[in-house]
């Protein structure tokens, strides 16, 4: 059943999701379409959820039975789309698999709130959250997680562990976009629009925009999930090298034949469920 889903999803990703993302529709419509699609992609679970103001940012907190700790998760969506609700499938499955509470802040999104609104919000949440906690994020949320990580390490407040799914690590202008041809989900036009909305007049050379430029002294163990031949695979490889160079243990998993951010399909896709299990195992292994 779940393997059939993976096959169908490869088709719908290429011929439905990708063409829709390529359309220059108003951002509100893209957000609604993504929210709708997110519900269909996962199996929603019944588990205790509460919303709480954390450092001035509304945050969705999902609690598994007998929670053993906390994970701060930053959702993806190109800094423009997505919310704690669109990522509920991923965070709720991860919470139940890992036994951790997962905190997902509703950080401010572009284009209404360009950089540095999102990293500022994330920092406020991290400062207000009970410690210690694990840190993670997917796609653009991976970018925010890495930006926060670099700051936290500088401040001497390292998270327990880091979990990333296909993070965006480099927002500098790039010439070599030929690789996007193997990408199933993300059209070049969409990436450019998200980048422009988020950076507005900035050039991406700030390390709080492109964390591949940041330093990560004393980085805790990292688990990294990538999709083979996705447009962000080189980003993932680059940050893996950077983190390893800083002395971190990096466990990398590259899943073949899956679209960008495939663990969002938790509960429906076998590949996603296996990713959830790998991430949960990583989190459990680094519980204090």
């Amino acid at each position: 059943m779940s393997q059939v889903f993976d096959r169908i999803r490869r088709f719908t990703t290429r011929y439905v999701d990708r063409p829709i993302l390529a359309l220059p529709l108003p951002v509100g419509i893209h957000r609604s379409l993504f929210a709708l699609q997110a519900k269909l992609m996962t199996t929603e679970v019944e588990v205790a959820v509460r919303w709480q103001d954390v450092g001035g940012v509304p945050t969705r907190i999902v609690s598994p039975p007998r929670p053993k700790g906390r994970l701060l998760w930053l959702h993806g969506g190109g800094f423009v789309l997505g919310s704690p609700d669109t990522h509920a499938g991923l965070t709720d499955h991860l919470a139940l698999a890992s036994g951790l509470e997962v905190w997902t802040p509703r950080y401010r999104r572009a284009p209404e709130h360009p950089w540095p609104a999102a990293p500022d919000d994330v920092r406020s949440v991290a400062q207000a959250m009970p410690r210690p906690f694990h840190l993670g994020g997917d796609s653009a949320g991976g970018n925010l997680a890495l930006v926060l990580l670099a700051q936290a390490l500088t401040d001497g407040r390292a998270p327990l562990s880091v979990t990333l799914i296909s993070p965006v690590v480099d927002l500098r202008e790039r010439q070599d976009d030929s690789r996007t041809d193997a990408e199933m989900l993300l059209p070049r036009a969409f990436l450019h629009r998200c980048r422009a909305a988020y950076l507005r007049d900035a050039d991406g050379r700030d390390r709080r925009q492109s964390p591949v430029l940041a330093e990560f002294p004393g980085c805790p163990p990292v688990h990294l999930e990538l999709s083979a031949r996705e447009v962000l695979e080189p980003d993932g490889m680059a940050i893996a090298e950077r983190l390893e160079a800083a002395g971190a243990t990096v466990h990398l998993h590259v899943e073949p034949k899956t679209p960008h951010d495939y663990p969002l399909c938790a509960g429906r896709s076998s590949a996603a469920d296996m990713a959830i299990l790998r991430m949960a195992k990583h989190l459990e292994a680094h519980q204090p």
């Binding site: 588990v47 139940l96 036994g99 938790a266 509960g267 959830i276």
Partner: peptide
Amino acid sequence: GLPVFDWEDDAI
């Protein structure tokens, strides 16, 4: 056989 199936204690 999926990790979302994590039962609460009987008392709860």
